[in-house]
Design a protein around this nucleic acid. Structure first.
Length: 877
DNA sequence: CCGACATGCAA
DNA sequence: TATTGCATGTCGG
């Protein structure tokens, strides 16, 4: 017999709130109701071996009862703010625990519970309904148990009512309980009832006559006399009350019981959330889960050549295949897994040479109906696969579903999408070193590798369903998966660096740094570590007594913008600023980049990461090639050491103000759209309109301020932020913003809309459906919430721009390959692409860049690019 | 030796 | 107290 638990959300939350003193976390968010709710829920789950669990909530919309009776629930006190703020939080917790929450306009939670309770009873389930509200007793049967918890800090006691228990307590059946309520009324719901009849009298009357109708027919026989008279006088009101008090059991609901199947409630998402809420007692429950690690059956080690070949050649189009190819430290092999089968591990050794294994693995991947992997890009170095092969990268799918996680490894995917706790790579590594594994523990090592093949193929169905249900399947298929191959090609191509020139640049810096260091020690009267903000702060603000000492958490702030204001007070400040600038260039760029030049080809092969950013941008590491200096001339000189290879030249193209154009389109603001269609200088245009100055008379200062406002808008503007940026008062900044919104009313409406939508849905969305959760919006901390609002304004813009350049990259890369060109895409810097173009392909490359970048998507405003050619990166300006 | 913090580079 | 990143050096556990 399967068991279903249904919870009356608001009612339990309410009980918990009043039963437990106010608690709050570090953010100031109150948590007592959430805590109490979860305690009750877990207590019930612990004692009942339930298979299904769902929680119903009331919605903030009138129900049929309100339509019948205007005063319905009219006397109910409004929810205190400290409780109200916990409603979305408990929903979020439930969501993280994969417990469905049900709410439906026009129905109360009671009606949902009644409908589902009766339906599942009829279908043969045992049902428990949890509520703090005795109204629910009318639903009790011998299969439906109504459970009413009494919350105290010390613990929870629960009263249970089957039909018989209701009868025992009230001498009426559950159905008759409705009639009883029709007589006695309910002040909290504003059900009128019949005056002069309370619980005792009502119980006596209904236990005798079983319904208000019968009682009315025998009114004369009723005692006491007052009750008899009032029942006649107020009979209509009693009938009316009966309808109000009757819980509907025939609501039309779109709900499938399987969605309420109890899964892995203690997962990463719920852990993070509970941790944030600081619900330590609930967090304890995770410990016991960690021990339930699933160490699945066995891995078949196919070290026999014939057996391995036959397994791989047996893969056909009806198979869902999981693959993981590994090559490191002279150790190479393939883990593979067919859906619902035992994983296999095939080491590259003996007759099964690495070359043969790689080829057979790639061939199997191509033949399979679908081939699922985790983190495909690095495996492409060994497996020759391309975007046409339709590989499914589970890490990228998981990233789209929640881009806020810090990794997408197999153990996390197993936890989140399969409810499975498996040992992580680190857990296995603790047990044995790689060498030990390869030499002595082949089977164990294969066992560990096998997770990387097994998890993606098992999670495939769930991930696919998530992508479809969130509307991100096309984003995944048409943008993200093809992009994997474009990024791989970029990494493989790398960028050539003139090592000697870089070294020379470094030593030039060193000369000046030594000079500055000497000067600084002299001016300070002692030597100290200039790189230590702590020591520097003491020298500047204590020893030299400079003014405006600003504090950070740990001491004085010595950041450039502070020092800049101190320049005139002491010559040491200027020297320090220059020292800072030069040591930055030396350590991060001159020395830092040198360490990444590969000796075999004198090129830097940086990594481009696709599953890092919250907004959908790509990131660059080892080294970061997206933050090479450009603003200051001295820093910009570094770009001279990045050069094209022989017979090549650099071509770059960058979008002109892509984010502002995306904003114009998404907001549909006619003024901004018109400004772009007329192809004017947009910052000047903004200045002209915001400052009421004729276009031709805008001063450089006005234009520059307008530019700052435009930036601010994209970042989710705040008057404080703008005032800092422009060194003006907050008041003035407020005026600029107000003027801006008056000029472009559509922008204001859009930004407001974005915040509202994110609050409602819990995430921000790009034009292509990419989502970015914004949990900060739930915070009761003003700063956190404001941060959430800025994220909600910025993410759709930054994210859509990221979507667009990704589309362009995929198409540019495709065309370079399809047309068998030797030119290669080598860098992406958020709104810019850099190509190392073979000299005789330059015109074709320029045409491709222009076409694919400007037409990656059609917006209400044109997308424009600027293109340049140069013999090194520095010249591309 | 690792993590937090401060700092500064880019779009 | 403006969005998104990454790398560096210092310093303390």
């Amino acid at each position: 017999m399967s068991k279903v638990i249904l919870i009356d959300g608001h009612s339990i939350l309410n009980r918990a709130y009043y039963g437990i003193p106010l608690l709050s976390n570090a953010e100031g968010l109150h948590t007592n109701a959430v805590y109490g709710f979860l305690n009750i829920m877990f207590k019930i789950l612990d004692e009942e071996k339930a298979d299904y669990l769902a929680v119903a909530f009331d919605v903030h919309a009138p129900t049929f009862r309100h339509e019948m009776f205007e005063a319905y629930k009219g006397t109910r006190k409004p929810m205190p703010e400290e409780l109200r703020e916990q409603v979305p939080v408990i929903k979020e917790v439930l969501h993280a625990m994969q417990i469905p929450t049900l709410e439906h306009a026009g129905y109360e939670a009671d009606d949902i519970l009644g409908t589902l309770g009766k339906a599942y009873e009829a279908a043969g389930y045992d049902v428990s309904i949890i509520s703090g509200d005795r109204d629910l007793l009318q639903l009790a049967t011998d299969k439906i148990k109504i459970r009413i918890p009494k919350t105290k800090m010390s613990g929870t006691e629960i009263e249970d009512y089957y039909a018989a228990d209701v009868f025992e307590k009230y001498q009426v059946t559950p159905t008759e309980f409705i009639d009883m309520k029709a007589l006695m009324g309910d002040t909290s719901d504003n059900i009128p009832g019949v005056p002069g009849i309370g619980e005792k009298t009502a119980s006596k009357i209904i236990s005798t006559w079983h319904s208000i109708e019968e009682a009315h027919a025998h009114a004369a026989e009723l005692k006491p006399k007052k009750a008899s008279e009032n029942l006649v006088t107020y009979y209509e009101q009693a009938q009316f009350s009966k309808v109000l008090a009757t819980i509907k059991t025939d609501c039309v609901l779109d709900f499938k019981l399987e969605d309420a199947a109890i899964g892995q409630m203690m997962n990463d998402a719920s852990y993070a959330l509970l941790k944030r809420l600081e619900l330590k007692n609930i967090l304890k429950r995770f410990d016991s889960v960690a021990e339930t690690t699933v160490n699945y059956q066995t891995v078949k080690v196919l070290d026999d050549f014939a057996a391995a070949v036959s397994w791989l050649e047996g893969i056909g189009e009806t198979d869902q295949l999981g693959l993981y190819y590994f090559s490191e430290d002279d150790f190479e092999g393939l883990a593979a897994c067919k859906a619902d089968n035992v994983p296999v591990y095939i080491p590259a050794e003996g007759m099964m040479t690495a070359a043969v294994l790689r080829e057979m693995a790639a061939a199997a991947a191509k033949r399979a109906g679908v081939c699922c992997m985790i983190d495909v890009k690095p495996q492409l170095y060994w497996l020759e696969l391309s975007e046409e092969d339709g590989i499914f990268d589970a890490a990228i799918a998981a990233y789209l579903i929640n881009p806020l996680k810090d990794s997408y490894t197999y153990d996390g995917i197993a936890q989140d999408f399969l409810g499975m706790t498996v040992p992580s790579r680190a857990d296995w590594m603790k047990k044995m070193t790689l060498t030990e594994a390869s030499e002595k523990e082949k089977e164990s090592f294969g066992h560990y590798l096998a997770y990387s093949a097994m998890i993606p193929v098992q999670a495939y169905g769930t991930l696919k369903k998530w992508l479809e249900e969130t509307g991100m399947d096309r984003l995944f298929d048409e943008i993200e998966m093809p992009l994997v191959y474009a990024l791989y090609d970029m990494e493989k191509a790398g960028i050539a660096v003139e090592k000697d020139a870089l070294a020379e640049y470094g030593s030039r810096l060193t000369g000046r740094i030594d000079e500055l260091e000497k000067n600084i020690y002299e001016l300070a009267g002692e030597s100290f570590n200039i790189n230590s903000p702590k020591q520097l702060g003491i020298i500047l603000f204590e020893k030299l007594g400079l003014p405006f000492a600003k504090k950070t958490k740990t001491g004085y702030s010595t950041s450039a913008d502070i020092l800049e204001k101190l320049r005139t007070y002491d010559p040491i400040v200027g020297q320090i600023l220059e020292y800072r600038q030069l040591t930055k260039l030396k350590s991060t760029y001159a020395d830092g980049l040198a360490g990444y030049i590969r000796p075999d080809d004198q090129r830097i092969h940086g990594k481009f990461n696709q599953t890092i950013t919250a907004t959908g941008r790509i990131s660059s590491t080892e080294p970061n090639l997206q933050n090479i200096p450009v603003r200051m001339e001295l820093g910009r000189l570094i770009r001279k050491v990045f050069v094209p290879k022989e017979d090549c030249i650099f071509v770059n193209a960058d979008y002109s103000q892509i984010e502002l154009r995306v904003l114009a389109h998404m907001a549909g603001d006619e003024h901004l759209i018109r400004a772009y269609k007329e192809a004017q200088d947009i910052h000047r245009m903004t200045a002209s309109q915001v400052f009421h100055t004729p276009f031709d008379e805008v001063t450089p200062a006005q234009r520059s301020n307008a530019k700052a406002v435009n930036f601010g808008i994209v970042y989710g503007i705040s008057s404080f932020g703008l005032s800092q940026d422009l060194s003006i008062t907050k008041k003035e900044a407020e005026n600029y913003i107000q003027q801006y919104f008056r000029t472009y009313p559509g922008i204001k409406a859009f930004l407001d809309r974005s915040v509202e939508a994110a609050k409602e849905k819990g995430y921000a969305v790009t034009l292509f459906g990419r989502r970015r959760p914004v949990p900060e919006l739930l915070s009761s901390n003003f700063m956190q919430r404001s941060f959430g609002e800025r994220i909600a304004m910025n993410s759709p813009i930054q994210g859509t721009a990221a979507d667009i350049i990704k589309i362009a990259m995929v198409r540019v890369n495709r065309r370079l390959k399809q047309q068998h060109m030797k030119s290669r895409l080598i860098l992406q810097i958020h709104d810019e692409l850099l190509i190392e173009a073979v000299l005789d392909e330059v015109d074709a490359v320029k045409a491709i860049l222009k076409e694919e970048m400007e037409h990656a998507v059609t917006l209400a405003v044109p997308l424009e690019i600027d293109m340049h050619i140069g013999h090194n990166w520095y010249e591309l300006k």
